[in-house]
Computed example of a mutant assay.
Amino acid sequence: MVKRVHIFDWHREHAKKVEEFAGWEMPIWYSSIKEEHLAVRNGVGIFDVSHMGEIFFRGKDALEFLQYVTTNDISRPPAISGTYTLVLNERGAVKDETLVFNMGNDTYMMVCDSDAFEKLDAWFNAIKRGIEKFDDIDLEIENKTYDMAMFSIQGPKARDLAKDLFGIDINNLWWFQAKEVELDGIRMLLSRSGYTSENGFEVYFEDANPYHPDPSKRGEPEKALYVWKTILEAGEQYGIRPAGLGARDTLRLEAGYTLYGNETKEKQLLSTDIDEVTPLQANLEFALFWDKEFIGKEALLKQREHGLPSKMVHFKMVDKGIPREGYKVYANGQLIGEVTSGTLSPLLGIGIGIAFVKPEYARPGVEIEVDIRGDLKKALTVAPPFYDPKKYGAFREE
Rank of each mutant, 00 (worst) to 15 (best):
I80T: 05
P156S: 04
R248G: 02
A39S: 11
K217I: 02
A247C: 07
G82L: 03
S50P: 01
K302L: 14
V277D: 09
M188L: 10
E36H: 11
S81M: 03
C112Q: 04
M312V: 05
S341K: 03
F166T: 00
R304S: 10
F356V: 02
D147A: 07
L38T: 01
N283F: 09
T264D: 13
F134H: 13
I168Y: 11
P213L: 08
H14Q: 13
E13C: 04
D147R: 04
K229M: 06
K302N: 08
L308C: 04
L300D: 00
K223S: 09
E236L: 03
G296D: 03
E360F: 11
L300W: 11
S75P: 08
F356I: 02
E25T: 05
D375I: 15
P323D: 04
D136M: 12
K311C: 00
V40Q: 09
N105M: 02
F124Y: 15
K229I: 01
K265G: 05
V382H: 13
D207K: 08
I350S: 10
K390L: 15
K223T: 02
S345G: 04
V203Q: 06
K320I: 03
V313M: 05
D48H: 07
Q177W: 13
R396F: 15
D48L: 08
I33L: 08
V357P: 05
E233I: 00
M150F: 11
T196M: 09
N42E: 14
G104Y: 10
E35S: 14
G43R: 13
F386D: 00
R76G: 06
S114A: 14
V366D: 05
K267S: 11
P346K: 10
P156A: 01
V18K: 07
D136W: 12
L99F: 15
W290T: 03
L280R: 08
V111D: 08
Y260D: 08
K267L: 15
E25I: 11
E369F: 06
L288W: 09
N42Q: 12
R91H: 11
V318K: 14
E54C: 06
I131H: 13
S193K: 06
K3P: 01
V277L: 15
I28N: 13
M103W: 08
R187T: 06
V366A: 07
T196V: 02
Y211I: 00
R218Y: 11
D113I: 01
E206K: 15
V370F: 06
M1R: 15
K95P: 00
Y68E: 14
K320L: 10
E254K: 09
K358E: 14
S32I: 02
L376G: 00
K377V: 03
K34T: 13
F166Q: 05
K328C: 02
A62Q: 07
F205T: 00
D169T: 01
V49Q: 08
F101P: 01
E97A: 06
L251C: 06
S216R: 14
A282I: 03
K157D: 05
I127E: 12
H37Y: 15
T145Q: 07
R373L: 14
V382T: 08
G307K: 05
Q154M: 06
E285N: 10
S114K: 12
S75D: 09
G155H: 11
K292V: 01
E338K: 15
G185R: 10
G104E: 07
G261P: 01
L189G: 02
R129V: 02
F151V: 00
G256V: 01
V44P: 00
A178K: 07
I74V: 12
P77T: 04
E285G: 02
D249I: 13
L269H: 11
